[in-house]
Amino acid sequence: MKLTKNPQVPNEYWQAIVANDPSYDHTFLYGVRTTGIFCRPSCKARVPNIENVRIFKNAKLAQFENFRPCKRCKPDGLRQPDEEWMEQMIEWIDQHYKERVTLNRLAEISHGSPSHLQRTFKRVKGMSPLKYIQQVRISQAIHDLETTDRSVTDIGIAVGLPNIAYFVTLFKEKTGSSPSDYRNNHQQKQSKEGHNHELYER
């Protein structure tokens, strides 16, 4: 693996992270800036980019820097509460819903197994991760239909649903009407309300 210089990460520690070496578990912990999670060197999570790695002597220092303990390797025996874990996932989905989001990708980012993430998300949030992602995408599509003149195709692509046939089907399933019908109905409603407001002002 190509090494990128990071003065905060000694080469010896980096090699331990890459090799998932348990002999270093009581020597240091490492945090990943892009996920906000810290792990043992032996953690089986995907090897991060070295530029994003922070080294910590112990869990307290990592937590002081607002890093959260990994759900997979539980550094120093710490366990992130499920509710906090799910809020972290919600925040990530809200920021990345336009991308291709799968259960495996969510599990990789959160350092948990796909099945455990699925069960915990459903228990805490009352729906599966997929359902939540769909909800976020459709909510954004509704906002775009109401506030822009972008085409249905462009809106579908913008919210992470580039298969337009699927976008239309999902939108109708969630709202009861197609995107085009929804926009037309909204415009008619706005026009009627504007007309009524004008009559009232007279």
Rank of each mutant, 00 (worst) to 15 (best):
L61F: 05
T102A: 00
D94V: 13
C70Q: 02
R72M: 12
K71R: 09
E91N: 11
D76R: 07
E83H: 14
P81D: 05
D94K: 15
D82W: 09
D76W: 08
E65M: 12
N52R: 10
L78M: 12
K71G: 05
V53G: 01
F67S: 01
R46D: 12
A107R: 01
N58L: 05
F64C: 07
I90S: 00
K60A: 11
F56D: 04
W85G: 12
Q95L: 14
V47F: 02
A62M: 06
Y97R: 04
R105D: 06
P69H: 01
I50V: 15
A59G: 09
E91K: 14
C73T: 03
Y97H: 05
H96V: 10
N104T: 10
R72T: 04
R72P: 00
P48I: 03
C73M: 00
L103R: 05
I55N: 03
D82E: 14
N52W: 12
V47N: 00
N66W: 04
R54M: 12
F67E: 01
G77R: 02
E83L: 15
D94E: 15
D82Q: 11
M86R: 02
M86Y: 01
P48L: 05
I90V: 15
K74A: 08
C73Q: 00
G77M: 04
I90N: 07
M89V: 12
W85N: 10
E83S: 13
Q88I: 11
Q88E: 13
K71N: 06
E87V: 11
M89H: 06
N104C: 09
D82L: 14
D76V: 02
K71H: 07
L78N: 07
R100Y: 09
V47E: 02
E84I: 12
F67M: 03
P69D: 01
T102L: 04
A45M: 14
F67T: 00
F56T: 03
W85S: 13
T102Q: 02
M86P: 01
I90H: 08
N104I: 10
R79H: 08
R105V: 07
K71F: 09
A59H: 06
Q63T: 05
N66R: 06
Q80N: 11
I93D: 03
N58H: 06
R100S: 12
P69L: 02
D82M: 13
P75S: 04
Q80L: 15
R54F: 11
Q88T: 11
Q88G: 10
E84V: 10
V53W: 00
V53I: 14
N66H: 06
Q95H: 11
E108T: 10
E99R: 10
Q88L: 14
L106N: 03
I93K: 02
N49I: 09
N58E: 08
G77P: 04
E83R: 15
H96Y: 09
L78W: 04
I55W: 03
Y97V: 08
P75G: 01
I90A: 04
E84P: 05
P81G: 04
P81M: 01
Y97T: 06
L61I: 10
A45F: 08
P69N: 01
D94Q: 15
P48R: 00
I90M: 07
R100F: 12
V101L: 03
K98V: 14
H96E: 05
E87N: 13
G77H: 03
I50S: 07
M86Q: 07
E87W: 09
A45Y: 08
P69Y: 00
C73R: 03
K98Q: 14
A62L: 02
